[in-house]
Design a protein around this nucleic acid. Structure first.
Lengths: 222, 222
DNA sequence: TACAGCTGTAACAATTCTGTGACAAAGGTA
DNA sequence: TACCTTTGTCACAGAATTGTTACAGCTGTA
């Protein structure tokens, strides 16, 4: 699924410019022409990954919108401003901005910084591909070469932990701590049972999960 | 009804390329190989929603066509040009262009920009089609392959929210906030009940609404 | 008033998930 | 081989989640 970016600017031309470049880069752009509209859109549309916010706007200005957003969300915010005083920059960071770009700016540089920011904040991609497996972290779904595999929450978390530690041998204790949590105090044979269930569901790719006798398990695509 | 796009270029290869990509995207493409033909076609065929115009053409060039079109219509115009000087870009905007793409370009990027331009100019569709569902937002009516489905207000709003967030997993809390409003403070099981009512009414298409156990619901046409 | 449709809630049913124990199978060693 | 350790597999009971239904309150209308 495309990552959504909310662009907030009262100038139509600026919204169009940003929208074009970001859309071409593969983002889904949602536009708002003022602070009030931005707040409404942000609250009603889930999954917005980044807000690009003009400082100078009528009614609510950028800083005010930023403060209001910060009361409900930690979504990354990138400020766009025509002014360039150092105070403004400091003010932006104080009220919770993650980036700050001065107008005029080069659109391609802005795209680069947007990409970098999103990668920095969200880290991994939403879609992970390993061998014949495709995993969508946003909706807990896994496909094995086009076939949807339905995993329970525990199985999904277990698979994610294995994949994130590919090539590493993981003890049952490590797995329990990270998938079940430190407070868990059951048998470590529970891990074996779930590993078995996972292997059954990963029909063709179950050999990715290897047993390391005497130690634990390891995920490896070969 | 499909949206008509007039593609004007003297190179046959280019017309075919554009026509293929835009047709695949669901547009109806009308071709013209020079400025004069473009003017004639535009005047004789009503309902053209966008013109893609090559700048370098024999007889009437793109800018001249654009100026002539602008005397009779505000239809959005997208320029395509092999040249890349900043002056040309400025000249294009002055004579009334809405977009400007330099050759060579990626056809899929062009399609994205065409979609964005049309959406921006004409706004959202009143009629939404998803799989076997047809939804008219102006009168809150829904059809499932010719059969009218009578939904209550809540059910309609719920369906719209699901469709507007297709492919996204929505938690019960998100759904309550957006369909019922933030001030609502009942059980989140209300969502389940309404989801059930919706599924009963969407007889043949109720599998579009998927339960994501432990998380919430997701709308997806497959 | 009577009535019909819509809504939210609670209760119960159905389904799915989870951890555990028991036993089978496999691996390793003397 | 015999023996012990480790892992795989399965069944089951209880927990958690979701589906479904009934019902009471509410609204607007005839």
């Amino acid at each position: 699924m495309k990552k959504k970016i909310l662009v907030v600017d009262d100038e139509t031309r600026m919204r169009i410019l940003l929208s074009d470049f970001l859309t071409a880069e593969g983002y889904e752009v949602i536009e708002a022409s003022n602070g009030r509209e931005a707040m409404n859109t942000f609250c009603s549309m889930p999954g917005i990954r980044l807000i690009i916010l003009d400082v100078m706007m009528p009614e609510l200005n950028g800083w005010q919108v930023c403060e209001e957003i910060r009361t409900i969300s930690d979504v990354p915010i990138l400020f766009l401003t025509a002014m360039s005083s150092e105070n403004d920059e400091i003010k932006s960071f104080i009220c919770g901005a993650d980036e700050f770009i001065k107008k005029p700016f080069s659109p391609s540089v802005l795209v680069l910084r947007v990409n970098a920011l999103i990668k920095r904040i969200y880290g991994e991609e939403d879609i992970i591909e390993k061998g014949m497996l495709r995993i969508d972290r946003t909706c807990n779904m896994v496909w094995e070469t086009h076939d949807l595999i339905e995993l329970s929450q525990t199985e999904f978390k277990l698979l994610m932990y294995l994949i994130q530690n590919e090539h590493a041998v993981l003890s049952r204790e490590q797995i329990l701590d990270n998938v079940w949590g430190f407070q868990y105090d059951g048998t470590d044979r529970t891990v074996d049972t779930h590993m078995n269930r996972l292997r059954i569901k990963l029909k063709k790719s179950n050999h990715y999960i290897r047993t390391i006798r005497g130690i634990g398990y390891m995920f490896e695509v070969m």
